[in-house]
Computed example of a mutant assay.
Amino acid sequence: MAYSEYLTDRVRNSLKGNKIGFEEKKMFGTLSFFVDEKLCVGVSGEELLVRIPPEDQDKYLQNEDCRLLDDSGKSMKGFLLINAEAVDMDEDLDKWVKRCLEFNPKAKSSKKKRSM
């Protein structure tokens, strides 16, 4: 699945506006933005992928614009997909990006594979 270039550019601009260094990686049809070597936010299809505190996800899931990221039948705690209409306005997108950035220092890094 391709990801929205338009939404990708907007996320990129939001991160730059927050004066945050980031790295972009294409993963599983998603463009992911890594901050401090941790997945922070991304774009999957037309949706925004956000990483938030797992204990906050139920609060956001009450909103019909949010759903759990479901990786082959297994939901991933703290990862939500936000539909495009919910982040149509820059201030709404920026609000989600800021939530991701606030959580990022507390987020666990994925385990690095050791090379042999």
Results as ranks from 00 to 15, higher is better:
R12E: 08
S110A: 10
K16E: 02
P53S: 03
F22A: 10
L93P: 03
E5I: 15
D9E: 14
K108F: 07
L68Y: 06
E47C: 09
D88C: 13
L61P: 12
N13V: 05
N83K: 14
E55H: 13
K16L: 05
V97T: 02
K113C: 01
V35Q: 05
C66G: 01
E5P: 15
F22M: 10
E46C: 12
Y6S: 10
S14K: 02
N13M: 04
I20Y: 00
G42S: 08
I20S: 04
W96C: 02
L39D: 08
S115K: 13
S4M: 06
P54T: 04
S44Y: 09
M116E: 01
P54A: 07
K112P: 00
V35D: 03
W96V: 02
E91A: 08
M116G: 00
T30W: 05
L39Y: 09
D70S: 15
D71P: 01
V87S: 00
V41S: 03
F28T: 03
K59I: 12
D90N: 07
L68C: 13
A84F: 09
D94C: 02
A2V: 15
C66Q: 04
L81R: 15
D92S: 12
T8G: 03
F103K: 07
R99T: 08
S109Y: 03
F103C: 09
D94N: 07
K19Q: 10
V50I: 15
L7D: 00
K16S: 05
K16Y: 01
D58I: 14
G73R: 03
V11W: 09
V41R: 05
R12N: 08
D65P: 02
E102D: 13
R10Q: 11
K19E: 06
K98I: 07
L101F: 04
I20D: 01
M116K: 10
K16R: 05
F103A: 10
D9K: 15
V43R: 04
S75R: 15
V41T: 04
G78H: 12
L69T: 10
D90Q: 03
K25Q: 02
M27E: 06
Y3L: 14
D70P: 08
M76C: 13
S75D: 11
L93A: 05
E64H: 13
D92F: 07
T8Q: 10
G78P: 08
L49Q: 10
L69D: 10
D56V: 13
L15T: 00
L81S: 11
S14L: 01
L81Y: 08
L81T: 11
K25M: 01
S4W: 06
S44G: 11
L81I: 14
S115G: 05
C40F: 02
L80M: 15
D92N: 13
S72Y: 07
G42R: 08
D56W: 11
S32C: 11
M27Y: 02
L68K: 15
Y3W: 14
K95H: 08
D71E: 08
A84L: 12
Y6T: 15
K59W: 04
K77Y: 04
M89W: 00
L39H: 09
C40N: 00
S75G: 12
N18C: 13
F28I: 04
E102V: 15
